[in-house]
Amino acid sequence: MSARKPTLLLLSAVALLVLGGGVFALRQVLHDDGPPPLPAVTPVGGVTLIEARPFTLDVPYIHDWRAERPQVTAGVLLVLGVDGELVHPRQGYEPVLYVGDQTAERINVGHESGHVIAVVPAPVDGQGRVALDLSTTPIYFGAPALPEQVDAATVAKELAAAKARGIVAPAAPAVSAASRPQVRFHDDYDVRVFAADLIEAWSPMETDLVSGLRAPLVGK
């Protein structure tokens, strides 16, 4: 018998088996436009009340600026004069804005204008009026923190420290001059759209923020 060369047979078998088996400092420091230093001591007062507009809501929302995340059914929309350095945007801890025993939500940045538009939740009295007497409520910046981590104990501590440092509530005439008629909003979106007008008026360089807040509402 001659030698066979069963190439195909061998190759097929092997194939079957396999398939089955499976600069250096070129320039010196040119500038430093980082955030300014944090205040050495807090709480810090010196906040000016410019405008205060109480509001109520048809649809409550969650106040994310407190660890307890309370529900908001009413509040006061504030325009405040502040030291711009206290609200200079930074990624680390920022001084927390308090209104009495409550954290305030800062809607704009305000470091260039020195004006902050903020919302502070407040209760409503039996007559449906927002019950926050700003003439007895100090407005101040407390210790740097993440507001979402600020709890009742921290708030109490900050308020006590503010009073101890002589930070007082705005004078009654100033509160009276700043007060605006109470309004009714449907929800927090409407609050923020309303706030866009205040930002445009008091912190006009924040154009992207304003245009963003006024962006067309989907479906409308």
């Binding site: 030698a3 190759l11 092997v14 396999v18 398939l19 499976g22």
Partner: peptide
């Protein structure tokens, strides 16, 4: 006494 099988190394991708 010698059997030679000639071909090529199989080409299956799984191999």
């Amino acid at each position: 006494g010698e059997l030679d099988l000639a071909g090529t190394v199989p080409l299956p991708e799984g191999g």
